[in-house]
């Protein structure tokens, strides 16, 4: 069940070598306050799972620049040249995943599924090392489910129960990641008394902690 925590308690949740899912699309909907605190904690060797590599000065890109990341699992790194540089120097492992496959792998993990079958990536580099399964005469790639130790959820409006809805396009990967991690922490943009039950996107049992403080309106 959700509880409200402050910066100090959040930092206490972090450990070297953790896998962290971070919501947001080109940093729209990324919880920048939680990223600040991960930087402050200076935990190392992180695996970061996010739609993209963010920018050098924004989003998960800041963790890469701060040398805290061992591996990124993302669909796109074009907006953060630092990732490409570190990758070619073999200082950072990069797993590029088609965006829809990334979304579905995360959704599958959260739903207790072992993986998904998709035609995306067939006959491309994405296929390498993966099983091909034929169903009703069509070929599919087996893509394994993807979970993580902790999810950092942004772009949300939370209520006092810990229910979440999301602000405009800030929804993106956030509700999927909130289902797929051992611990889920949300940095809401705003906390309201109650969200109408019909409008809740992430029900409170998915949410463990809500960060309160200077990060909320």
């Amino acid at each position: 069940m959700r509880s409200f925590i402050n910066a100090e308690k959040f930092i206490a949740l972090l450990e070297d070598g953790m896998s962290i899912m971070v919501g947001g699309f080109l940093t729209n909907g990324t919880p920048e306050g939680l990223i600040d605190l991960v930087i402050e904690s200076n935990v190392k060797d992180l695996t970061i799972i996010c739609n993209d590599g963010g920018y050098p000065d924004k989003g998960v890109g800041r963790l890469v620049v701060n040398n805290q990341v061992k591996k990124v699992i993302v669909s796109h790194i074009g907006t953060n040249p630092m990732i490409g540089t570190l990758m070619s120097e073999q200082k950072l492992e990069v797993e590029l995943v088609p965006q829809g496959t990334l979304a579905e792998r995360i959704r599958a993990y959260g739903a207790g599924l072992g993986g998904i079958l998709t035609q995306t990536g067939l006959d491309t580099l994405v296929q390498e090392g993966k099983q091909i399964i034929e169903v009703n005469g069509k070929k599919y790639l087996l893509e394994e489910a993807l979970g993580a130790d902790i999810a950092l959820i942004g772009g949300a409006i939370a209520d006092n129960y810990g229910n979440l809805k999301y602000n405009k396009t800030m929804r993106n990967f956030n509700p999927l990641m909130a289902t797929a991690c051992k611990v889920v922490v949300c940095e809401p943009r705003k906390i309201v008394d109650k969200i109408n039950s019909e409008n809740v996107i992430t029900p409170h049992p998915f949410v463990d902690y809500i960060l309160v403080g200077e990060y909320n309106d």
Binding site: D52, S75, H76, L96, P98, Q99, G100, T101, T124, V126
Partner: peptide
């Protein structure tokens, strides 16, 4: 989405779009 050794922006949603 990739020029090996030169530029690797990543596929984003392009593989899904072209396939689907």
């Amino acid at each position: 989405w990739i020029i090996p050794g030169k530029k690797v922006p990543g596929m984003g949603g392009a593989m899904d779009l072209v396939t689907g």
